[in-house]
């Protein structure tokens, strides 16, 4: 398997109070192989979301390089940048604030298609996209507030898949959902990954979910990756002291 996402010596500084500098991401390097589900875990402020934002071309890096399917979004031409967003798409944490409340679901899901540049693939219809994520076609006419959190997150996945991406970034896609609903969305993501051969960058603070669905995991702490490996092995046998502390802090349900 060849790497499709490459992050090399990535650094991102933010301006802190009184001319100080806060390093959110500190010399981070990793790669994600094609069709892999790669987890990034860490607590708030660990830099996991900043890494994703640089990959999505939402935050300019201070140093280092990223590339997805061979395109570096930060040095690409205008045309390549458009293509870039057909390669990588995102599902955000909060299904309430990531959709325009005045747009119907059909418009939400297909809005990105207007900027599509690759014409060798057929343009998916709204019905096809909704069907892909298990929503009835009638939802096309509905507004985001009429959907439950889980349904909205399905619509967000449909919106991301409309562009026919190879890589999907899922930034805490279920942490805003009720516990009993999370499994539906996670199972959908897993089956779509297989069906469409997607590569998934799965960002989460929930070690249990990552252990169950990711092929590999990177643990971030204070802007650095402290450990990378097989999730089960990493969490059952953590070698880094921070990972050890993190694993020990997770409240567990007793096994019956």
């Amino acid at each position: 398997m060849s790497p499709i996402v490459v992050v090399e010596n990535l650094t991102k500084d933010y301006a802190g109070p009184s001319k100080s500098v806060r390093r959110a991401v500190d010399d981070v390097s990793f790669h994600v192989n094609e069709q892999e589900i790669f987890g990034i875990v860490g607590e708030s402020g660990s830099g996991k979301t900043t890494v994703a934002r640089v990959l999505l071309r939402l935050t300019r890096p201070t140093g280092g390089h990223v590339s997805v399917a061979g395109i570096d979004p930060w040095s690409a031409s205008r045309e390549d940048r458009r293509r870039y967003h057909e390669v990588i798409q995102v599902v955000f944490q909060d299904p309430y604030s990531s959709m325009d409340p005045r747009m119907r679901i059909g418009a939400v899901v297909t809005e990105g298609l207007r900027s599509r540049r690759t014409h060798d693939r057929p343009v998916p219809t709204v019905a096809e996209l909704l069907d892909l994520v298990g929503l009835p076609a009638s939802y096309e006419r509905m507004y985001p507030h009429e959907l439950s959190g889980g349904q909205r997150q399905r619509a967000a996945i449909a919106r991301a898949l409309a562009m026919g991406p190879q890589v999907l970034v899922a930034d805490e896609p279920v942490s805003a959902l009720d516990v009993s609903m999370r499994g539906q969305v996670l199972n959908l993501l897993t089956s779509l990954q297989v069906e469409l051969g997607l590569t998934v960058l799965f960002i989460s603070h929930d070690l249990g979910i990552v252990q169950q669905m990711c092929n590999r995991v990177a643990v971030m702490h204070n802007g650095r990756i402290v450990e990378t490996g097989d999730p089960v092995e990493t969490f059952e046998n953590p070698s880094d002291p921070y990972t050890q502390r993190l694993v020990a802090s997770v409240p567990r349900i007793p096994v019956s």
Partner: peptide, 9 residues
Amino acid sequence: SAGEPFDFI
């Protein structure tokens, strides 16, 4: 276990 589907209601 790794790879198993998630439970839900």
